[in-house]
């Protein structure tokens, strides 16, 4: 997306770098969250995985938001954070190795 060139139309921006334990989990989050498009034409989002400085593995989920107003930016980022929290919780408790180790918290 042409976020960089849209500075005039989309003056409000926020970039979030979310570190994951592994590149695999970062990539899964990217794929799970990337499917749903932003609902508002006043907000644009780009998702990518990047490697932290000095590392090879792309274990950081980089989320760039640009929006026409700060209000739109806040609404979009809040919603993204809600979804991200869900992905993290599912990864933490329902990954294959976690279930195999029986470390998952009991349901009740």
């Amino acid at each position: 997306m042409a976020a960089a060139t849209d500075g005039a139309e989309f003056p409000c921006s926020l970039t979030l770098d979310i570190p994951f334990p592994t590149a695999r989990l970062a990539s899964i989050a990217l794929q799970a969250l990337g499917v749903d498009k932003e609902l508002s034409p006043l907000v644009r989002r780009t998702l990518s995985t990047v490697a932290p400085e000095g590392f090879q593995d792309e274990s950081v989920l980089r989320t760039k938001y640009v929006a026409t107003t700060n209000r739109m930016l806040r609404v979009a980022v809040n919603s993204f954070m809600d979804s991200l929290a869900l992905v993290l919780e599912v990864q933490e408790q329902l990954d294959v190795d976690v279930l195999a180790a029986g470390n998952a918290k009991t349901a009740d």
């Binding site: 899964i28 989050a29 794929q31 499917v35 809600d82 869900l86 990864q91 329902l94």
Partner: peptide, 8 residues
């Protein structure tokens, strides 16, 4: 919300 979790 549920679709995101199902994808994950």
């Amino acid at each position: 919300s549920v679709a995101i979790a199902a994808r994950t």
